[in-house]
Write a protein that binds this DNA or RNA. Sequence first.
DNA 1: GATGAATGAGCGTTCATTCAT
DNA 2: TATGAATGAACGCTCATTCAT
Lengths: 194, 194, 194, 194
Amino acid sequence: MVEEKRDKRELILEAAAVVFAQRGYHQAKVEEIAIQAGIGKGTVYEYFSSKLELFQEMFKSILGKYFAELRSLQDQRGSVTERLRQLLEIHLDFINRNSDFARVTFVDGAVMDEELSWWMYRQRQEKVERLRELFQEGIARHEFRPIDPGLLAEMFTGAMAAIIIPVLMEGKTVEPHKIADQVMDILLHGVRLD
Amino acid sequence: MVEEKRDKRELILEAAAVVFAQRGYHQAKVEEIAIQAGIGKGTVYEYFSSKLELFQEMFKSILGKYFAELRSLQDQRGSVTERLRQLLEIHLDFINRNSDFARVTFVDGAVMDEELSWWMYRQRQEKVERLRELFQEGIARHEFRPIDPGLLAEMFTGAMAAIIIPVLMEGKTVEPHKIADQVMDILLHGVRLD
Amino acid sequence: MVEEKRDKRELILEAAAVVFAQRGYHQAKVEEIAIQAGIGKGTVYEYFSSKLELFQEMFKSILGKYFAELRSLQDQRGSVTERLRQLLEIHLDFINRNSDFARVTFVDGAVMDEELSWWMYRQRQEKVERLRELFQEGIARHEFRPIDPGLLAEMFTGAMAAIIIPVLMEGKTVEPHKIADQVMDILLHGVRLD
Amino acid sequence: MVEEKRDKRELILEAAAVVFAQRGYHQAKVEEIAIQAGIGKGTVYEYFSSKLELFQEMFKSILGKYFAELRSLQDQRGSVTERLRQLLEIHLDFINRNSDFARVTFVDGAVMDEELSWWMYRQRQEKVERLRELFQEGIARHEFRPIDPGLLAEMFTGAMAAIIIPVLMEGKTVEPHKIADQVMDILLHGVRLD
DNA sequence: GATGAATGAGCGTTCATTCAT
DNA sequence: TATGAATGAACGCTCATTCAT
C-alpha cells in the first residue's frame, strides 16, 4: 500500500515535470498534468494540496536526484580541479538524461511570481554555496589563485546554466566529457593567448 | 499628436517595466500597469494589442536602450579584450541603474509560457551571437586562444547573467569597474595557480 | 453615473434576493444571480467582493427597508401596546409585499455555515433588543406586568417569525390587521378562559 | 448481524448529529462524519444512500426521541394547561440535554436547499399540528378562550423555538421549570397589567 | 483619442459518490 | 461487509479584452 502510494505520487511528479517543462508554471493546467499521469484531476489533490505545492515538490524531487548524483563527488578525495570536472560531467550528463525535467529546474532565475521566484532563488543559492565551498577549498589547497570564491561560484553556476540552455530549448545534446574538458580548460587557463 | 502618442506609449512602457519587474509576467495585471502609468485601463489597448505584445515591446524597448549603450563599443577600434572589459562595465552599470527593469529583461531563460520563453530565447541568442563574433575576432586577432567561440559566448553570457542575480534579488549593488576587472582577470588567465 | 451605478448595485441586490430566497445560500449560484439580473457573471464582482458579501449586503439591504418602515413607530408617542400592534401590522404587511425577499431574511436561525449563522444571529439579536426595550418601556409605563422583558422579546420575535412561515412556504397571505388584533389579544390577555 | 448493523447505523446517526450541528448541512463533510463515527468513509454509504438521506434520517431519529419523551404527556389525562406546561419543561430539558443535536433539528425554518427546507417544513408542521390539537382540546374543555388554535399553535411553536436560540448559539442553559412557569404565565394571563 | 464598466472564458479546488479490493 | 483511493462535476472567482460613451 505504501509502495503503491509512493508510486502514484512519483507518477504525478513525473507528469508534472513534463507538463511544467512544456508549458511553464502558469500555462500548465492541473487537469493536463492529471491526464499526462493517466489519472483523474481530483487525484492530484490527494497527494498535493495545491498546484504550487506540486510544483515545489516536483522541483525538489528533481533537485534531490541531481544532488544525489553529485554526492558521489563530495565523498571522494581527489583534487578540487578533478572534482569540478566530474561535477561538470555529471551535470551535463544529468541534463542529457533529464532534459525535460531540467528545463524547469536548472534554468536560472525564472521570472515567475514573486513568491515562486524567491523560492527558486533560495534553491539556487544552495547550489551556489556548495560551489563556493569547493572553490574555497581549491584556493586553500593552492590549486587556484586567491580569487573571490563567491564570484567564482556565481560565474560558474551561470556558465553551467548557460551551456545547457540550447540543449533544453533546441533539443541539442552535448558530449559531457568533451564539453567538460573545454570548460575546465577555459576555467583553469583562461582564454588569453601567450 | 504623434508626439503625444509617442510620449504616452513611452509612459506605458515604463509603467509596464516597473510592474512586470515587480510581479512577473503572469502576476502583473494590465490594470495595475494602467494605474502605474496614471491612465485608464482601456488606453493601454490603444497602444498595444495585448498584454503579451506590451511585454514584448517593453522588453525590446529596454533591450534597445541596453544595446544603444553597448553600441559605442562596436564603433571603437580598441582590442577585443578592452572591448569585453568595457562591455562588462557597461552591462553592470546598466544593471545598477535599471535593476527594476533588468529583473525581467536580463534574467536568462525565464520559465514562462512556451510562447514567451521561445521569444525570449531568441532575443537572448542575439546577444550571444554578438558575443560570439567578438570572441571570434579576438581569436582572429591572436588575442585569445582558439577556443570554440560559441561555447565562450554562452559561458560569458551565463556568467554575466549570474553575477547580477543577487543584485536583482537582494538589491545588492556591484562596483562595475571592480567586478569587471575580476571577471576579466578570470576570463583571461583562468583560476589555476602556477 | 453615480445614479446608474447605484441602480445596478440595486439590480444585483434584488436579483440576489430572488435567487437566494428560491435556492438558499449554498444552492444559489452566482451565475444564476447574474442571469436573473440580466448581467454578466463578472459584473457581480464589480459591485461585491464575494458571494458571501453579496448575501450579507442583500440581507442588510432588506433589513434596512424593514427597519425604515418600522421607524415611523419609534417616533410616535402612542402607548406601547398601540406601538406593538402597529409593529405587528407593519411586519405582516411587509412580509405580504416582500415574501420572496423575506423568506431569506426573516426566517429565524437559519442552519447554515457557522460563519453565516453567527452573523445572522447577531442581526436577529438587534431586532430582539429593540423589542426588549419596547417591552421594558411598557412595564415602566405600567401597561404591562413586570415580566422578564428579554424573555418576552424572544417569545414575541419567535411568534412573529412563526406566523409568517406558512406565508413564505405556501404562498398564503395574511390579513395584517386581523392577525395583529388576534396576536395582540393573546399577548395582552392570554388564552385562559375565566 | 442485524443487531450489529443497527448499532453501526445508530453510531453514524449520532456522529452525523454532532457534525451537522457543528457545521451546518453544507459545511459538514461526509468524511468528517465518518471520522467522528470512527469508521471508513465508504461505510456511511452502506447505511445511507446519500448525504441528504443521512441528514433526514438523523433529523427524524432525533425528532423521534423528542416525540418519545413527549409521548408520556399524550397518554396522561391531566388538564391541557398542565400538559402544555409539562410539554414545555420536557422541551426545554431535552434541549439542555441535546443542545448539539437540537441546533440542527429545532431551529425553525432553516434556509437551506429548496428540497431540504420543504422537507423540514413538513416535519415542523407535524409538530404544529399536534399543538393545534392540544389547543383545540383546551378550548373544547373550556380551559382556553375560543382563539384560532392554528394561530396559537404557530405562535407557541415559534416562541418555543425562539427561547432556545440563545441556548444553542451561546451555550447558555435554561432552567426548564422556571422558564416553563414564566412562559405559561404569559400564555395564560397575558402581559397586560390590570 | 480616452475611458472604465461590463464581460465570460478559463481554472484551481472541493467533496459527494463510486467501486475494486 | 468495510474501506478509502479515485473520480469529475460543479462552482467561485480572476482578469485580459471589448466597446459604448
